[in-house]
Design a protein around this nucleic acid. Structure first.
Lengths: 198, 198
DNA sequence: GTTTTTGTTGATTGACGAGTCAATTAAAAA
DNA sequence: TTTTTAATTGACTCGTCAATCAACAAAAAC
């Protein structure tokens, strides 16, 4: 039955199945056979297309990351003005879709992987730098020269609240977290207004 | 050679070895044999005292957690006045010792485990609640009724900055992170001074 | 119509690892 | 002194899993 051009289809199916399996297990403790079965093929085929388990994981991570990136970009095109843009970035991180089991699991295990796997760490750095420069750029009109510093706090707060929300409740509320970050942002802006020359 | 009363000694050695192995691997992907060898005993003995791998991990997590708790408590007794106490809590999270390889690995894998293991999740909740109420209590004189809300932001910022610092650089700087959180705290206090009645 | 290329899998290998158990040692209790 | 109890391990079982490979199927190229 070899229909041609199966490779991209198989790869995508495997990536999705990988994310689903990781989400179900909560860890990277999933076998190639499980992934392949969910993707509707033999484990040998998974090895054939990806070469090894690590490659499959990396591809899954890249996919999760790019979904997040797309979400941020999508939110940004609909936002006009610096404040709306910063708010869009914040909101994008706490979307319902970002709190799905699989996505949380992907992120947490991504962090774990980043300790030992250089490729994972680099991927993470890319995402963080993009988010950071996005924030810095749009914060400048709001908080002036302190922009870079403020961006660190906002980004850190996003990550920290995401982590807490994802782990503490069964049904995470992105709205609570969003409100918290927006409040912090408001403080930063107020602060800037008090020291307009700094 | 059965000297009596070996159990607590063996347990402690196993817990320490577990943390060290997790730190070296960066993940929970360590074998009981590895742990036991590092602790200077056979793997059978590890099973004898702990019953299984999961129990060993849980004990290691509890140990890491209690070390952190002790650090916070130690910092608190030397701090007088609400502001100094809040600052002490913040500083305690970014100590050099908290950025050691093994400790970072323990925390990250703890988060991963908390998704699927109920005991781990409960342990994490305990730590978070303690930190939260500590913050709320000491923040009240500083920010009044907003205390609870502010505590969420401070705690979130601590976690987020810790995560970023631990993963982005090879040599994490607790000082940078501490400064960032203290600045955020200053903003919150300023904000409180502007709305003294709320 | 033959050959090459792409897709596909069952079967197998080789390694590893968690947990068990019977057996050994020596201290302590009786 | 005999017996119980704690400490300890080597050897073994049973299962799992990543990775490989030979072989087969069908479309495309020649």
């Amino acid at each position: 039955m070899p229909k041609l051009g199966m490779e991209p289809i198989r790869r995508e199916a495997l990536v999705k199945a990988t994310i689903a399996e990781i989400g179900q297990a909560g860890s990277l403790d999933v076998t190639v056979a499980q992934i392949a079965r969910r993707a509707g093929m033999s484990s040998a085929l998974a090895h054939h297309y990806f070469g090894g388990k690590d490659q499959i994981f990396l591809a899954a991570m890249r996919h999760t990351l790019s979904l997040y990136g797309a979400e941020v970009r999508g939110a940004l095109v609909m936002a006009h003005g610096p404040k709306a843009r910063v708010e869009a970035i914040i909101r994008a991180g706490f979307t319902h879709s970002n709190f799905r089991r699989e996505v949380v699991a992907a992120w947490l295990n991504f962090y774990v992987l980043a300790q030992s796997d250089d490729q994972a760490r680099r991927l993470l750095a890319v995402y963080q730098r993009r988010l950071h420069s996005n924030l810095v750029y749009n914060l400048r009109p709001l908080v002036g020269a302190r922009s870079a510093e403020v961006a660190v706090r906002i980004a850190g707060l996003i990550d920290g609240l995401y982590l807490r929300e994802a782990l503490s409740k069964e049904v995470p509320s992105g709205d609570d977290a969003t409100r918290q970050v927006l409040t912090a942002l408001a403080h930063e802006i107020t602060q800037a207004d008090r020291e307009p020359l700094v």
